[in-house]
Nucleic acid binder design. Structure first.
Lengths: 217, 217, 217, 217
DNA sequence: TATGAATGAGCGTTCATTCAT
DNA sequence: AATGAATGAACGCTCATTCAT
């Protein structure tokens, strides 16, 4: 069982200088995107010489992929590995809450990492390992949603992939609003939004009480 | 009902070669992002020589901004200008449907444009006009949501900006899933998702009947 | 005997549009130098389309050379051809005055042409014809100066080429000062300077009356 | 007497690679002018890669200005700073000799630098520092000439600026002849020409004995 | 091991020249 | 004959990467 400590505790990441470079790259990639920044700016942010970067990473692209793999992996760990500890008898809302908490926990603990992932998920520079990490999350989420639908806890009028996309998208939207309009959308908004997002995916929301509520049941 | 003619019908965009360059740039920016592509690749896609680009646009950056302004403007037109035609007496769900239809209509009619906007909303290269177009949409959406909350149609336990972020984010999530897993998430998913998204923002969803889990079934 | 009318009256230069291009090029070359300007700027100044320039001149370089040849030729005409009309019995100061007047006349009548010649005499783009025109002037001047030295009118302590260089250089210096500090150095300065320049080249200036003036005689 | 060490002994110019680039640029600017040459040709001449130029100078234009400022400054040093060491009691010819020697010394020691200055004094790319250096020389020369005129040593029938222009122009003319017809005009011509140039500016040349042409012989 | 100067391919952009109209 | 849009080689400059120190 993996240790749930920070992503920095990867096997490969014991070297503190290596970590400083990764942190600096994360920050710079967020500010200017992968293609929009240059390697010396990462080195400067890390407090090392440009050449030093190439002692730890074979290329700028490899740095991107390591970062992507690491943080997408950390997200997966929070979502999936901890998810396995859930009691199968837990009710649906508890399962949802677990997922939402894991998601928002990641976003609040590592906002830069989340922004980085959002910003670079479509880069043609990502390698198969990076994509694999993303797919692993999707697969786990899919299984949970399908189970939730089968027990009637989650609405069945949407494909599982759609529900996942809606939830993840809603979180990403919240995050973006938080970044842009920090004053209007505080970090507590993530918790408060749980109810609304749950209403989107749960089964049994009362339909619009338009003509005859009985028909709807 | 919005006219489905393309945003290309702008006054400034009658010149077909200019339009070919804009279309090519849209495609290339989507595939490789602004900073990740080079001008000759846009020229090649447009079927013109590199120098020709500069007869129509003063710089690569100007091309990005024209594209951003044009398409964000088209989205605003669909959302806001047509929105004004709504009868103020329309009920909340009808207003929501209008917005959702306008949003998904744009996404389905111009998927590349939507992807481009999603991909470049954070670029430091965007000028004031481009940002202004984005702010105009936000302002209009905010007004609608506040009105909806005041008449009790939209849930009041979330800040207006949060509701907007959740809805827009859900759509963007859907779109991304559609791009990645086209087979699982068809284009009809946009319409079907309307109910789920509406449940997220409307007022009056039955609270979870926590006391008695049996009802949940 | 050539007609002393303006240089524009060359055989090849009857076409007024051709002349407009030459005039525009002269102005633009003066302002920004040959290598520092572009062809469209010449066309704009001439009031023609860019392509039209190439109906009259095979290349930008050919335009430079035609201009150089034409104006250096005009200068030669003023200096040499008119010089032949001088009565061989004229005294030396009259000969000098003739040359100085021809030189300053050219500078005052065609300041832009003179500036152009000064600015481009060293260009590697000049062809043999252009250089030939320059050499023709030098040769004629050389003959006059040698004659002047032999009859004792011009100082013999300097090589003929040196005297020519000093006079021409003094004029060019005057011209440059006139351009830069127009207020301090008016156009009448050219005439006034004749005495000073003549004192530089004539024979028989009293040497410094240092010890014994008698010795000097 | 000025120290004949090169201007390269500037504080900012200790770095030998930087100096190699400056030297190469000087040579290439002389051969092809600023606008007529490209940066790779300078790099090749300096024996470095193109990119290396930009480690030492922010732009091609900055290279031009550094060169102009440096060499115009060196000329000023030779003319003005050493000029202050003159004994105020020195007679006018001695003052003139000092200036002429300083001028010709610079031309003979640094012919390329002089040619560069002559070739680029009119560039629109020169910055304020560069122009300032040129103005400093003019101002110093002006003061000396005005003083010379007031004590009656220099001719008063010409404006001070005119006398300066004539002398500097004569030197430049000599230099140009030396470059073009090296065989006819040797480097010793600079010294020999001092008498002639002095006769141009000093007071008290015998006026032409016009009354009796016989004396002229 | 760490540095940062050096490299040169590749970038965004310009411009002499061409050619369909 | 004249136009000016189009071309693409060449420009000034940047930057991922290398390597002598």
């Amino acid at each position: 069982m993996p240790e749930p400590r920070s992503a920095a505790t990867n096997a490969a990441t014991e070297d503190p200088k290596r970590q400083k470079i990764l942190d600096a790259a994360l920050a710079v990639f967020c500010e200017r995107t992968f293609a929009g920044c240059n390697v010396p700016s990462i080195a400067e942010r890390a407090g090392v010489a440009t050449g030093t970067i190439y002692r730890y990473f074979p290329s700028k692209e490899a740095l991107l992929n390591e970062l992507y793999r690491t943080w997408k992996g950390e997200l997966r760990r929070r979502l999936v590995d901890d998810g396995l500890r859930l009691d199968p008898g837990d009710d649906a809302r508890a399962v949802f809450d677990h997922w939402w908490t894991a998601l928002t926990g990641f976003v609040c603990d590592e906002p830069q990492a989340f922004e980085f992932l959002e910003l670079h998920h479509h880069e043609p520079y990502l390698d198969d390992d990076s994509h694999g990490e993303a797919l692993a999350i999707d697969a786990a989420a899919l299984a949970f949603v399908e189970a939730g639908q089968q027990v009637g806890a989650l609405r069945a009028d949407q494909a599982p992939a759609v529900l996942i996309a809606l939830v993840y998208g809603a979180l990403a939207g919240l995050f973006r609003a938080h970044r842009l309009y920090g004053e209007l959308v505080g970090t507590d908004a993530y918790d408060q939004a749980a109810d609304a997002v749950w209403d989107m995916v749960r089964n049994g929301t009362t339909p619009d009480p338009t003509p005859d509520p009985k028909d709807e049941r």
